[in-house]
Lab assay of single mutants.
Amino acid sequence: HHGSGALAALHADGPHAGLPVTRSDARVLIFNDWEERKRSEPWLRLDMSDKAIFRRYPHLR
């Protein structure tokens, strides 16, 4: 199991509170979210491209 239990660094406060600090933090969040959702949506594709990251977390651009 590759990303399970990996912890992402999140901004503690300010405008980005609760959001990932780096792209690799964002990838951890996206992976964990996908892993949760694919139980009920097995067709869901995992997209951890930069484009997917920016779409979801525009502050990382």
Rank of each mutant, 00 (worst) to 15 (best):
H1L: 10
H1K: 12
H1N: 11
H1S: 10
H1M: 10
H1A: 11
H2V: 11
H2P: 15
H2I: 13
H2K: 12
H2C: 15
H2R: 12
G3E: 10
G3Y: 11
G3V: 12
S4F: 15
S4K: 15
G5F: 09
G5D: 08
G5V: 13
G5E: 10
G5N: 10
A6E: 08
A6M: 14
A6P: 11
A6R: 14
A6N: 10
A6L: 15
L7Q: 12
L7K: 13
L7E: 10
L7G: 11
A8W: 03
A8M: 05
A9F: 14
A9W: 08
A9L: 11
A9T: 12
A9D: 08
L10P: 10
L10N: 15
H11A: 04
H11E: 05
H11N: 06
H11Q: 03
H11S: 03
A12N: 08
A12V: 12
A12C: 13
A12F: 08
D13R: 06
D13L: 06
D13E: 09
D13W: 10
D13N: 08
G14W: 04
G14R: 03
G14P: 05
P15Y: 05
P15V: 07
P15L: 15
P15E: 06
H16V: 04
H16K: 05
H16N: 09
A17P: 03
A17S: 07
A17N: 06
A17D: 04
G18F: 04
G18N: 06
G18I: 03
G18C: 05
G18L: 06
G18Y: 04
L19N: 04
L19D: 11
L19K: 05
L19E: 05
P20Q: 00
P20F: 15
P20E: 10
P20V: 01
P20H: 01
V21I: 13
T22S: 09
T22Q: 05
R23V: 14
R23K: 15
R23C: 14
S24K: 13
S24F: 12
D25T: 00
D25F: 02
D25C: 07
D25I: 03
D25G: 05
A26H: 01
A26L: 01
A26V: 01
R27V: 06
R27C: 12
R27S: 04
R27F: 03
V28C: 12
V28I: 15
L29S: 02
L29G: 01
L29E: 03
L29Y: 02
L29F: 03
I30T: 01
I30N: 00
I30V: 05
I30K: 01
I30P: 01
I30R: 15
I30Y: 02
I30A: 01
I30M: 08
F31Q: 05
F31W: 08
N32D: 10
N32A: 12
D33G: 04
D33A: 09
D33W: 06
D33H: 05
D33T: 05
D33V: 04
W34Q: 00
W34P: 00
W34H: 04
W34A: 01
E35H: 13
E36M: 12
E36S: 11
E36Y: 13
E36F: 09
E36I: 13
R37P: 00
R37W: 02
R37F: 03
K38A: 14
K38E: 02
K38Q: 09
K38Y: 15
K38H: 12
K38F: 07
R39D: 11
R39C: 13
S40Y: 14
S40Q: 13
S40R: 11
E41S: 04
E41V: 05
P42V: 04
P42E: 04
P42G: 05
P42F: 04
P42A: 05
P42L: 03
P42N: 04
P42Y: 04
W43A: 12
W43Y: 09
W43F: 10
W43N: 14
W43I: 04
L44S: 09
L44D: 03
L44R: 05
L44F: 09
R45N: 08
R45V: 14
R45L: 14
R45C: 14
R45M: 09
L46S: 01
L46R: 00
L46P: 03
L46V: 07
D47F: 03
D47E: 04
D47W: 02
D47N: 13
D47C: 06
D47P: 00
M48Q: 05
M48P: 08
M48V: 09
M48D: 05
M48R: 02
M48E: 02
S49P: 00
S49H: 02
D50K: 06
D50V: 08
D50E: 08
D50R: 05
D50S: 06
K51S: 11
K51E: 15
K51D: 14
K51N: 10
A52H: 07
A52N: 07
A52F: 07
I53A: 00
I53D: 01
I53V: 11
I53Y: 01
F54Y: 10
F54L: 11
F54P: 01
F54I: 11
F54W: 06
R55C: 09
R55M: 13
R55H: 12
R55E: 15
R55Q: 14
R56I: 10
R56H: 14
R56S: 07
R56F: 05
R56T: 15
R56Q: 09
R56P: 02
R56N: 06
Y57K: 00
Y57T: 00
Y57V: 00
Y57H: 00
Y57Q: 11
Y57D: 00
Y57L: 03
P58Q: 02
P58V: 03
P58T: 02
P58K: 02
P58S: 02
P58W: 01
P58D: 01
H59C: 00
H59V: 00
H59Q: 01
H59L: 00
H59M: 00
L60D: 00
L60R: 00
R61D: 07
R61S: 08
R61E: 07
R61V: 08
R61F: 09
R61P: 07
R61M: 11
